[in-house]
Structure formats: structure tokens, C-alpha cells
Write a protein that binds this DNA or RNA. Structure first.
Lengths: 129, 129
DNA sequence: CGTATACTTGCACAAATGTGCTTATGTGTA
DNA sequence: TACACATAAGCACATTTGTGCAAGTATACG
């Protein structure tokens, strides 16, 4: 009963995942696990698993492209899920200022909208030092 | 960071509590633990703790009156919390039909809007047998 | 008073969840 | 084919969370 909704709530009830979904809502763009790692500072295992958890809760879509896996916000059509995403969207930006600026920095390293470098690259470390 | 919001999500990410909050939203009325027990079939410990968890997450208010403790939906003023409650409100009724009818039955046993009998009373068992 | 009733809290335990490490899979490139 | 790199999956472990039982607090009522 409402298991899908419960899964979504559980997926969001964890700070790292909430932050990830918030980011994906705000940037309105797909991101790779490598990019998520750099932006959040998470380990590879955690970035991968947290994105996958959001995917299993049907909040994200997954798309493999070469060696990269892109995750994107999934459009919701049922009212309760739509409103849940809207709720996350309304979270005050103040709590995410640094993560947002890191994300913009990381996305600016793309070429033609494609992720080119892996996690902890020279280019990234230069940008953030 | 957003701990209050995370608490609310956690509180809702459990079927029994989600059901309780949905009920409180729909009936738009305070209810006692005794009533919650009868309606959900939960034990006293669980009804008490689940309502208290929702209270600690600031989704409900608590009001002691004589030997009864009434819980009521708490009005939300921050957009993300408002929308979270709206999301729960939009959950399809189909999933709650039986619980809703039991709740109406239980509330009809009140006198002047006050709960008069405890859990598993004769009157209640008669009504639902 | 003393007893019944509504509710709370502490403890023990099982189940679920998050994390880290290691290893495996799969893809691009030389 | 071999190697580098992005991601996933398996395992052990600590933390959290839900549940049941028992004892405790508080209020009503005779």
C-alpha cells in the first residue's frame, strides 16, 4: 500500500540523497556519478549507491552512455509524487550554497554537454584549491 | 542542515505513521490515542509512539485534556513543509477506504466533540463486529 | 484514600540501513 | 589484446529503527 511513495520518502530521508535530488532539480540537467563525487565529496561507493537508491525509488532515470552513467530527474505524473518533488524544490537555497557553486564549476568543465573527465581530476583539483 | 525536514520525511516514511497523518489531514480534527488504536488496530505502545514521533517531527500538536491526549495536524508555514503535507493529502483515497470508514465510526461515538470511551470498548466492538 | 483507566518510558532484541573495503563488470583506447 | 578507468556488487560491521513486554506517571471517580 503506497509502497512506491514510502520508497520515495525513505530515499529522501537521508541528507546526502536529499542534497543530490535537490541539486538535480535545481540544475535541471543530468549528471554522472563522477561529477556527483566531485561536487559532494562523497566516495565512489556512496555516490553510486545513493544515486541508485533514488533511481530505484523512481525519482531519477538512468542512462548509460559509453563509460558514463547519467542520472536525470524523472518527471512525476501522480499528484502526491509531483508535490513531493515540489516540496524538495522549495527547500531554502541557503542550505546548499556551497554545493551549488561546486556543481556549477563542475558542469562548466563539460564539452558539448558531455562529461569528459573522471573524479578527482587535475582540472577539478585546480579549480577548487 | 534541514534536519527538521529530514525528521519529517523519516516520520512519514513508515506506513503506520503515514496512514495516521493522512487520517488527521482528512478528518481535519484532533484525535486521541485511544481512538487511533481502535481505528488502526495498533497496540497502545505503537499508537502512542507513532503519534509522538509525528509530534516530535513537528507535524502534529499535542494537547492534554483530562486523561486524554489529543493530537492535531499542525499548520505549516514554510513552503517545503506545507508542500510535504499537501503531498500526503493528495495520496489516493483508495488506499485508505477501510481506515477512513472506521475512523468516521469512531468519531461518531463522541459527545460534544469529546472522546468518551477508551480503546476496545463494548460500544466499539459492537459497531465493528 | 484506593482503584481503574489513559498514556509514557525503559529495556531487550530483531530487522533494516549506511559505510568502508575489496572485487567484479563493462567500456574506451592504445 | 592489454590496460586504464567508470561504475556496480558482495561482504562485514556499526548504527538506527520498529516491536513487544513490563513498569511507571497521571488523571478520574468511587
Amino acid at each position: 500500500m503506497n509502497e512506491h511513495y514510502i520508497d520515495a520518502l525513505k530515499a529522501l530521508a537521508e541528507p546526502n540523497r536529499l542534497r543530490l535530488l535537490w541539486l538535480l532539480i535545481q540544475v535541471n540537467q543530468r549528471i554522472t556519478i563522477a561529477e556527483a563525487m566531485d561536487v559532494t565529496g562523497d566516495t565512489q561507493y556512496n555516490a553510486s549507491r545513493n544515486l541508485k537508491t533514488l533511481y530505484k525509488a523512481k525519482l531519477l532515470t538512468q542512462e548509460k552512455q559509453g563509460k558514463w552513467v547519467y542520472y536525470t530527474l524523472m518527471p512525476q505524473f501522480e499528484p502526491h509524487l509531483e508535490k513531493l518533488v515540489e516540496s524538495v524544490r522549495s527547500l531554502p537555497q541557503e542550505n546548499f550554497i556551497d554545493i551549488m557553486s561546486r556543481c556549477k564549476k563542475r558542469l562548466s568543465m563539460r564539452v558539448n554537454g558531455e562529461c569528459m573527465v573522471g573524479p578527482n581530476s587535475e582540472e577539478w583539483l585546480d579549480k577548487t584549491s
